[in-house]
Design a protein around this nucleic acid. Structure first.
Length: 576
RNA sequence: UGGGGUGUCGCCAAGUCGGUAAGGCAACGGGUUUUGGUCCCGUCAUUCGAGGGUUCGAAUCCUUCCACCCCAGCCA
């Protein structure tokens, strides 16, 4: 349970209002001027053609966050106007993900496909006004007629078709009289516009395919630029927030809303989408990773998809905090993945129970400890939060410690175990290493130690200084487990930067996953439920895997490591 | 001289009427500590893409230039 932030001091009774940004300032000004009768309505409009990722989380937090803070509403609207790419499987996963992120949409779940009939009427309005026409040019011809960035386009021969003929043709398009591609409905705007999106954009195309929601009711489907603005208007959206690449489309957005006699005129505002270092967020690349089996599916714990992050052990709280901290602006940017990591640790530090697990076991025999004795130590689940309770951990003659915690020839500032050195076993006893046993290959396979019975609980009355404290696990009581260590998926900050040539796949981190099949856990972890998050003391935060974790046979994913100052010291020592 | 955008510390990002550069992450010091964790304390932009100009005074105004991003789907 979070023990964070008490009530805000004065007028704001809104919990956790997000920091301000240029969009909120626009809304504040609109409110001041009494626009939209003081209503604020936003929307999160995914196309159900893929899984949501952390970039979508930014948009979700922005839109739902504004609705929450302004006492408004945010609609979840599926922009499902291209049936060839969409499926109910995707809408289901999107609904799950938005809920998981902590946002509600029970009464505010919409589908562009529900507006097909309205949209069709709006199209007829445009035709009646002489602002849309049915064009028989094929796709290649339309492209050729469109002109280039620097040269104006040419008008289609069909551009001046009569209103009656346009209406007739459009109705027959709907009736299914034509084949795919035979005709399209276009807006009649300006083939010479310097804004490419205004050069008579396509409004409807013929597609004889089944739609995941409307079945075969329709064989013509509206395009984004026609659908989106009108859907916003139909829903009474006041502020339609989208990413930067739609800036040019805003002119068309306004044109359609104004000319189709839409019920209201929402305002489109663009912001920069999220880029995160050491990963990719474009749908195309993500699909590639999955299809080429460079990861194990959409919910691979290394994926930046919400499903992947969730399985990895990221919390919605951490992701929301991250989205609040990165801000919203119009400059293209690349956010440091370290910030996400920070938000994660900040959240997990408060909430994850502390437990002990040895990932790479090294056997330790306490020579002066009675053969069949077992001490039971009561250990708190959290050093700063008593409310999390305690559990009992058994201690016996044969233990395991981490291989990294012993050095036969310790470097400077290494204050873990070494021959002749004394360390503390957390909450247990002080032990001193008396002997090192090696195998034929010269590898250390076992340590012989003695313990000081007077240090029970892990402290000494004589005030003796012991710098190192190690985690441990009793051999006789340990639970075996598989633990998967994950690291960043790419070795390059921006895998999409090809200045030095290559492909983003060239930068995949070969060590992004390491599976340790024989880890040893303290017995309390035997039946960890899937998705539970804990801190393995001194190692990091770990999450019981949702797919593979079984009672009695736990499987853990490393969410992230703890800050490791020693690793840093050692690195700088090796340099000098 | 196609159009639309953006440029403030290594990474994000405030900076409302011009008044003398918030904050966070990262990094680096130090303290506390039975996690080399947490926590605490401190350091970290004479400078705002560059050059001119206006002004007592400019990141904010004017001007020239430079760099980067987006647009030629019957995708969204």
């Amino acid at each position: 349970m979070s023990t964070k932030s008490s009530e805000s001091d004065t007028e704001t009774n809104i919990e956790a209002a997000s920091p301000t940004n240029f969009i909120r300032e626009i809304i504040d000004e609109d409110l001041r001027q009494g626009k939209n009768d003081g209503r604020v309505v936003t929307r999160f409009p995914p196309e159900p053609n893929g899984y949501l990722h952390i970039g979508h989380a930014k948009s979700i937090c922005l839109n739902f966050g504004i609705a929450r803070d302004y006492n408004g509403a945010c609609n979840l609207r599926f922009d499902d106007t291209n049936p060839t790419k969409e499926s109910t499987e995707y809408v289901q996963s999107i609904r799950d993900d938005v809920r998981w992120m902590g946002f509600e949409f029970e009464k505010r779940e919409f589908y562009a496909s529900n507006y097909f009939e309205n949209l069709y009427s709006f199209a007829e309005v445009l035709i009646q006004k002489g602002l849309a026409y049915v064009d028989s040019l094929n796709a290649e011809e339309i492209r050729a007629f469109r002109g280039t960035l620097k040269e104006p386009g040419k008008e289609s021969p069909d551009r001046n078709r009569s209103i009656e003929e346009n209406l007739d043709l459009f109705r027959r398009m709907r009736a299914g009289e034509f084949k795919d591609g035979e005709y399209v409905l276009r807006a009649k705007i300006d083939m010479a516009s310097p804004n490419m999106t205004m050069r008579d954009p396509t409004l409807y195309r013929i597609r004889h395919v089944e739609h995941h929601r409307t079945g075969d009711t329709w064989c013509i489907y509206p395009m984004y630029d026609f659908t989106h603005c009108l859907s916003d208007s139909l829903e009474g959206v006041t502020h339609s927030l989208c990413s930067l690449e739609f800036q040019d489309n805003r002119a068309l957005y306004d044109w359609v809303v104004a000319n189709a006699d839409a019920p209201c005129r929402p305002q489109q505002i663009e912001f920069a989408r999220l880029n995160l270092s050491y990963t990719v967020l474009s749908k195309r690349r993500l699909i590639q990773l999955v299809e080429e089996k460079l990861v194990n599916g959409w919910d691979d714990p290394r994926m930046p998809t919400l499903q992947g992050l969730r399985r990895r052990g990221y919390t919605p709280e951490a992701i929301r905090e991250f989205c609040d901290r990165i801000g919203v602006a119009k400059a293209d940017s690349m956010v440091d993945a370290a910030l996400l990591d920070f938000c994660l640790r900040e959240d997990l530090n408060d909430r994850a129970p502390r437990v002990m697990a040895v990932l790479r076991p090294l056997k330790v025999v306490i020579e002066n400890y009675p053969e069949d004795q077992v001490d039971e130590f009561e250990m708190p689940y959290h050093p700063e939060d008593e409310s999390m309770g305690k559990r009992v951990v058994p201690f016996s003659k044969v233990l395991y410690i981490e291989q990294d915690d012993f050095r036969e020839d310790p470097p400077k500032k290494f204050f873990r175990l070494a021959p002749g050195k004394e360390v503390r076993l957390r909450y247990a006893y002080y032990i001193t290493c008396t002997d090192v046993i090696k195998n034929g290959a010269g590898e250390v396979v076992e340590l012989r130690c003695t313990y000081d019975p007077a240090t029970k609980g892990g402290w000494s009355e004589d005030g003796r200084k012991v710098k190192g404290t190690l985690h441990w696990v009793s051999a006789a009581h340990a639970v075996k487990a598989e633990v998967r260590l994950y690291d960043k998926l790419f070795t390059k900050e921006n895998p999409m930067d090809f200045d030095e040539g290559g492909d983003f796949k060239d930068f995949i981190n070969p060590d992004s996953i390491e599976v340790l099949p024989e880890c040893l856990l303290e017995p309390s972890l035997a039946d960890t439920p899937p998705e539970a998050k804990v801190q393995f003391e001194r190692l990091g935060y770990f999450c019981a895997d949702t797919r593979d974790c079984k009672p009695g046979a736990p499987v853990f994913n490393r969410i992230t490591t703890l800050r490791d100052t020693w690793a840093r010291i050692e690195r700088s020592q090796n340099k000098s």
